[in-house]
């Protein structure tokens, strides 16, 4: 049976990847007037990368083959 932690890994990795991609896009072409406070911190870049990393670790550690 596939571990529940594998599903968690998929969810975190996919969400993290999408958030990171959106953050990198904004980093490369920033909006003229940022719509959010603390835009300069680029939270979606590092938070997305963190979720992606945790998700990949879970996916690898709890992969069905293992």
């Amino acid at each position: 049976m596939i571990s529940i932690w594998f599903f968690i890994g998929i969810a975190l990795a996919v969400n993290g990847g999408l958030i990171l991609a959106a953050g990198v896009f904004q980093l490369l072409s920033p909006p003229i007037t940022p719509a959010v406070a603390l835009f300069k911190l680029h939270a979606n870049v590092w938070w997305g990368a963190l979720l992606l990393a945790i998700g990949l670790i879970y996916c690898f550690r709890f992969a069905p083959k293992r």
Partner: peptide
């Protein structure tokens, strides 16, 4: 959420 969350993060917050 609306104050701090840009594209992607907002989707995760709503999710």
């Amino acid at each position: 959420m609306a104050r701090y969350f840009g594209p992607g993060l907002l989707g995760l917050g709503v999710t």
